[in-house]
Design a protein around this nucleic acid. Structure first.
Length: 280
DNA sequence: AAGAAGCCCTGATAGC
DNA sequence: TGCTATCAGGGCTTCT
């Protein structure tokens, strides 16, 4: 379940291995994902990867042919770096090959593999000039870690909104990158009940929430940073900041602040964890 | 227009 | 033991 911090960690982790490298071979192993992997990806041999960046929860590889390789990890997607042994001979040690979908061999001896058991991810190849009009990008909301995500921005989002605050901050057309885990964590950190309609939050509460969203994501990125090595390590696996979750997946356990039991409720099919005493 | 529900998928787990 | 039912969840599509 990668969210923004995990996606950022993956971007940071693969950078050293792919930037400046040329693709020697791109092989689609299983095209079935959220959308079919376009065949055009197999014609990328000779192309250089110039930059790696994140947009919402998408990973973007900038190529030197004015194309962007767009990757979304969905629920269970993984990008791993393995070392080729001889030329294109592929020696994968990091995890099972069972759900491999795409394998990109590079001229520096490394192989980038996309693996996704649940097939909720996406891999696409688009023209760099169409980035802003791309179907999956054009409706994206604020980047929470950008300067655009101001106090005023969050107030405008919530001003007349009747749906609850948790669903609001998880809505990618409003704010990107905040999934179920970090929505629960940020609301706990801000001391706000998840089910409250967005428009009932005061200006002061919204500012507390904004700062909680930012700090929760930043802390998770910092924690992820210490596991960057693992992405390069064939045996490694970068995980969540899970040792420090305050409420997520802690039903019936003690609240770290007040010792009351953490509660779990279902909200539009998603589990929501919170502390009834610490969150108002 | 906004919000809620449905759907995609597999593996882990619970229930019989 | 081994089968079957349930659940998890991001994000798009469809319905209200």
């Amino acid at each position: 379940m990668p969210e923004l911090p995990e996606v950022q960690t993956v971007c940071d982790g693969i950078k050293d291995f792919v930037i400046g490298a040329r693709i020697t071979n791109a092989k689609i192993i299983n095209k079935k994902l959220r959308i079919e992997i376009p065949k055009s990806i197999e014609k990328l041999s000779g192309t250089e990867i110039q930059q790696v960046r994140r947009k919402a929860k998408y990973i973007i590889l900038e190529l030197n042919n004015d194309k962007l390789l767009v990757i979304h990890l969905g629920m269970s997607g993984r990008l791993t770096i393995d070392q080729n042994i001889i030329g294109d001979y592929y020696h994968k040690k990091s995890n099972s090959q069972k759900h491999d979908h795409l394998r990109i061999s590079l001229d520096n001896g490394y192989t980038l593999t996309y693996n996704d058991t649940r097939k909720f991810g996406l891999i696409d190849l688009i023209d760099s000039r169409e980035e802003s009009s791309y179907k999956y990008f054009k409706h994206l909301g604020y980047e929470p870690l950008s300067e655009n995500f101001t106090k005023q921005a969050l107030e405008d989002i919530c001003k007349a909104r009747t749906k609850n605050i948790k669903a609001t901050i998880m809505d990618a057309s409003l704010i990107v990158g905040v999934g179920n885990i970090y929505a629960c964590e940020a609301l706990f950190r801000a001391g706000i009940l998840p089910e409250r309609p967005a428009k009932t939050l005061s200006s002061k509460e919204l500012e507390r929430l904004r700062q909680a969203i930012i700090s929760t994501l930043e802390d998770a990125i910092k924690a992820g940073g210490s596991t960057i090595q693992d992405y390069a390590n064939p045996n490694g696996e970068a995980g969540y900041f899970q040792h420090s979750f305050s409420v997520y997946d802690r039903e019936d356990q003690e609240c770290k602040i007040c010792k009351n039991k953490i509660l779990r409720v279902k909200d539009s099919g998603r589990s929501t964890y919170y502390c009834k005493k610490c969150q108002k």
